[in-house]
Write a protein that binds this DNA or RNA. Structure first.
Lengths: 205, 205
DNA sequence: AATTGTAGTGAACGAAAGATCACTTGTCAA
DNA sequence: TTGACAAGTGATCTTTCGTTCACTACAATT
C-alpha cells in the first residue's frame, strides 16, 4: 500500500539520517534498505529534500503531541521518592525508545544546517524539559514537597544535567547503565538539597 | 610557504566542517576558500580523510594542552564573588573564541561517525569540565567557601547547566547575551545554595 | 649558472550522487 | 472485462564528487 511505503520511507530515512546525517545518506541506500530499487522512492517523494522536510514535519508534530500537550504531562508526584522514580521512568523511556533516540541524533546532526531542526533542538534539549519541570516544581512547592525557590531556576538546574546524561547515552550507548545510575544519584542529591523533609511539613509558626 | 598553506587548509577545513559537516564539505569549496585550485590541496594532504584526521589530531592536542594541563587550571577563587566572576570569564571566553566554537560544532556533528570525535566530545562537553570543577570545589570546601558535600556531584550539577547554555549559544548565537545572563543567574543561585556565608565561617562548636 | 625539489595550475577521469522516464505489473472501479 | 491509475522496475541522464597527472613557476642548493 502507498501509505505504508511512504511511512516506511520516513522511518528508514530517520534511521539512516540519525547514523550518517542527511548529506551522508544517499537515496540508493535508502531504497535498498526498503527492498526497492532507487527510483522507487521518487514515486512517493519528489526529492531527497522533500523526504527531509516530511521527516522534520513529522518530528515537530510528534514532539508537540508527545511533550507539548497537556494530557502527556506527568502527574505531579506526592512524595520526593515518587519524584525520583518519575524522573527515572522518564529517563529510561527516553533513552531506550529507539525512535526518540534517533530523533535526538538527527536534530543534533542537522541543527546548524536547518533552521527548523535548530529550533526543535533547543525546544527538545533545553526549553521544553525546563518548562515541564518548572510546572512540576511549582506544584511541588505548593504541596510543600520542595523548599520555596525560583521554580524555573530549579527546573533549569534539574533538567540540564539530566539532558547531558541523555546525550551521553546517545553518544556512547555502552555507558547507559552508568549514566542511569548517575541520573538517580543526581536526582537524590537534588531532593536532599531542595526537598522538604516530610516530617517537618507540619511545622508551623 | 608550505607550512603556512598546510595550516591554512586545516583552519579552513575546521571552518567548513563546523558549518556543513565533513560529508557536506567538498574539496573544491575548501580550495576556493583558500584561493587555490582544487588540486592544490592534494599537494599538502593526500585525501579529504587525511585532512579530517590531521584536524582531529590537532583538536585532541589542543584540548589536552588547553584544558588538560595543570598550568591552565584556573586559580581557586578566594571568595564566592570571585568564583562567579571566574565562571563568567571562562564562559565568555569559550563562547566568543571562534576556534573553540568551531571545535565544539565539529565534534557535535561528527560524534556518531568518528570514534575519536566521540571520545573528545564526551571529554569536552562533560567529563573534562566536571573534573575541573571537582578540583575547584574540593579546594573551595577546604577553604570553607562551600558547604561540605560531594565535590564531584556538585561539579556535575554546576558544569552541565553551563554546558547546556554554551551549546545553546553555538546553536543560536543571537541568544548569546541572554544565555550569558542566565549563566550568571545560575551561578549566583548555585552559590546561594551551596556557598558558605563568610560571616558564619568563623562559627565554631 | 645549473639543478633539483616543491607549491600551485588546469584539464581530465572514474565513481557516485540525485533525478528522470518509458515501461511493467497489479488493483480496483466502472 | 476493461480501463485507469498507482506502485515498482531498470536503464539512463546530468551533475558533482574525490582524485590524478602532466605541466609551469619559482626558490633554494650545489
Amino acid at each position: 500500500m502507498a501509505k505504508d511505503t511512504k511511512e516506511k520511507i520516513l522511518m528508514t530515512a530517520l534511521d539512516l539520517f540519525s547514523k550518517k546525517g542527511y548529506e551522508g545518506t544517499n537515496i540508493r541506500e535508502l531504497s535498498a534498505s526498503l527492498g526497492l530499487v532507487k527510483s522507487g522512492v521518487y514515486k512517493h517523494y519528489e526529492s531527497k529534500e522533500a523526504i527531509w522536510n516530511a521527516l522534520l514535519d513529522r518530528m515537530i508534530n510528534y514532539y508537540g503531541e508527545r511533550f507539548g500537550s497537556v494530557e502527556h504531562l506527568p502527574p505531579v508526584p506526592d512524595s520526593l521518592e515518587e519524584f525520583v522514580s518519575m524522573t527515572m521512568q522518564m529517563v529510561r523511556f527516553t533513552i531506550h525508545d529507539e525512535q526518540i533516540v534517533k530523533m535526538r541524533k538527527v536534530l543534533t546532526l542537522e541543527q546548524y544546517r536547518d533552521e527548523r531542526a535548530r529550533d526543535l533542538a533547543t525546544k527538545h534539549f533545553l526549553t521544553g524539559l525546563t518548562e515541564m519541570f518548572t510546572r512540576i516544581f511549582s506544584d511541588m512547592m505548593a504541596k510543600d514537597l520542595l523548599k520555596r525557590d525560583d521554580p524555573a531556576m530549579l527546573a533549569f538546574a534539574y533538567a540540564t544535567p539530566i539532558s547531558a546524561l541523555i546525550h551521553l547515552c546517545d553518544r556512547e550507548p555502552e555507558k547507559t547503565e552508568e549514566a542511569i545510575a548517575q541520573v538517580e544519584a543526581f536526582s537524590r542529591h537534588f531532593i536532599k538539597t531542595y526537598g522538604k523533609d516530610l516530617s517537618s511539613a507540619t511545622e508551623g509558626p
